[in-house]
Write a protein that binds this DNA or RNA. Structure first.
Length: 528
DNA sequence: TTAGGGTTTG
């Protein structure tokens, strides 16, 4: 970020550019293409920007590394260029992009390690946002549409998660995606060989109804090749077409007449392309609310394994053969489950502190009981902070423990109880929606340490630690071939990693956990 | 060097 010595850039208005000059500019993006491979050594980004002068200027950016290209996700984003020569980049080029939505945080998206950004720039971004909001800049371009609102024959941008992919032929790849919404039209299903599929092979009927099969062609095949299942994407200028006669590969054509197919045509015209959305982007956060909501997870996620069918005409193989054959294939094995750990699924979860990197078991009720009992012995006089209301509440008559026991209660936006035991806490849950357990410590109110829940809400308990799926803890399956055990473990771990690429931030662990849980389930099914 | 929006295959 800017230091005291940072140079003060001046930015040229777009209607004042002189041919051959080197300038810094900023502008609102009115058109863009995802970076594509040029015939030379670099990737090429193409965009058009405008500013208060209303002049629209095309920009061409050549950079070898994808991460150095402007991170543009939608029209309206605001870019700020340094050292561009008549808007073709040159040595010393850098770019910072901002969300163009009025009121959104002004968070720079850049690959530069150091960049200059001061209150003037912040003001510029905010002025551009207000100005752009008052203009009809993007009336004619495609927009992001959820699957639930897709119109046949229309071109649109789709924000989605990749679940699986498979090559169809040399010029076409199938991407199986979803956004958690249900398309009102029947979706065409492209049939591909299971052994070429990367990602999950089959899904429950419920989830299958939410999955769109997207066929991407030509130059997009290369981009698709690098995508990992689990990644969040925006596919630009996708086309929905009804009818199956035009779909390559194997389709159940007889049965799928007039079903909706999705095509990403070759070329980069109209900004056609595939963009990877970072996990922290607001669009991904929004999508996750659909994709990972509990209802889907319980009704769609967990049942997928039980619905997975096994063709018994497949030849049975030993686990050592599975071990040799690598990932992504379907096998038919019969193995005996000799032992497994942990015996209860929740023991595969650990509490993980991202700061100190410590990991510990999720406490069972017995342990929690002792933590709370210990704290309840020590509830001496305590001066609450002035901003909480305090009082006393009597326990229900049938509550355990000494009769006529009253607990001190503090009222915030939640209820905070001091000195209750775990059992009492559970009793109180019947009457109160949210409870934060607190204890007296040195005459002051304090929270428990992170090994106890900081919030009880209904039957849920919230921990300050992140739940972490402890991969090492759950294997122990033995079978015909002892060495296959280790390999099976590695395979499952690799599947997990492919679902959630390494380097994900802490927030992504909850997804990872869910994904892992699914795989764990599949694994035990296989074991049986 | 490369591309230089655009008139959309399957």
């Amino acid at each position: 970020l800017s230091s005291a010595k940072a140079p003060k850039y001046t930015y040229a208005k777009l209607d004042s550019l002189k041919a051959g000059s080197v300038v810094n500019v900023y502008g609102v993006v009115v058109f863009f293409k995802q970076p594509f491979k040029s015939r030379g050594t670099d990737f090429c980004s193409s965009l058009k920007i405008t500013d208060h002068s209303n002049e629209k200027i095309g920009c061409t950016i050549f950079c070898e590394k994808l991460e150095d290209h402007p991170k543009i996700f939608r029209n309206g984003d605001i870019v700020l260029f340094n050292k561009s020569i008549t808007l073709v980049n040159t040595f010393g080029f850098s770019v910072v992009t901002f969300d163009g939505v009025k009121g959104a945080p002004v968070e720079p998206r850049t690959s530069s390690r150091s960049f200059h950004f001061d209150p003037d720039d912040q003001r510029t971004v905010e002025e551009l946002r207000s100005w752009a909001a008052s203009q009809a800049l993007f009336a004619s371009v495609t927009s992001t549409v959820p699957l639930s609102a897709v119109q046949p024959k229309a071109y649109f941008d789709l924000t989605c998660q990749l679940l699986a992919k498979a090559p169809v032929d040399t010029t076409c790849t199938l991407l199986r995606v979803w956004d958690g919404t249900r398309c009102p039209h029947t979706l065409l299903k492209v049939i591909v060989e299971p052994h070429v599929t990367e990602g999950q092979l089959s899904f429950s009927k419920e989830r299958e109804n939410l999955i769109a099969d997207v066929l991407v062609y030509d130059n997009h095949v290369e981009v698709a090749r690098k995508l990992k299942p689990g990644v969040f994407l925006r596919i630009y200028n996708l086309r929905a077409i009804a009818g199956s006669s035009t779909v390559p590969g194997l389709t159940r054509s007889q049965l799928q007449v007039d079903h909706l197919a999705f095509h990403l045509h070759g070329g980069t015209s109209y900004g056609r392309g595939i963009g990877i959305l970072p996990d922290n982007s607001p669009d991904v956060q929004e999508l996750k609310r659909y994709v990972f909501n509990d209802e889907h997870f319980s009704s769609v996620g967990w049942c997928l394994c039980s619905e997975r069918s096994c063709g018994h005409d497949m030849q049975k193989v030993t686990l050592s053969e599975v071990k040799r054959s690598g990932l992504g294939r379907v096998h038919h094995v019969r193995a005996q489950l000799k032992a497994y750990e942990p015996h209860r699924l929740h023991e595969a979860l650990k509490l993980y502190c991202s700061k100190c990197k410590s990991m510990q078991d999720v406490p069972d009720d017995e342990l929690l009981e002792s933590i709370f009992s210990e704290a309840s012995k020590d509830c001496g006089p305590c001066s609450p902070p002035p901003w909480v209301l305090s009082g006393q509440v009597s326990l229900p008559r049938h509550a355990p423990g000494p009769s006529n026991r009253a607990l001190t209660v503090y009222l915030l936006t939640q209820l905070m109880f001091e000195g209750s035991t775990l059992e009492e806490m559970c009793q109180l849950m019947a009457s109160y929606q949210n409870i934060i357990p607190v204890r007296a410590s040195g005459g002051h109110l304090s929270l428990f340490d992170l090994s106890a829940p900081f919030l009880f809400r209904g039957r849920k308990r919230y921990y300050g630690f992140t739940f972490f799926f402890h991969q090492e803890s759950f294997f122990g399956v033995s079978a015909e071939d002892a060495s296959a055990n280790q390999e099976a473990q590695n395979s499952i771990c690799q599947i997990m990693d492919s679902l959630c690429p390494p380097g994900g931030n802490v927030a992504s662990w909850s997804e990872k956990l869910r994904m892992c849980a699914l795989n764990l389930h599949v694994f035990f099914k296989k074991g049986q």
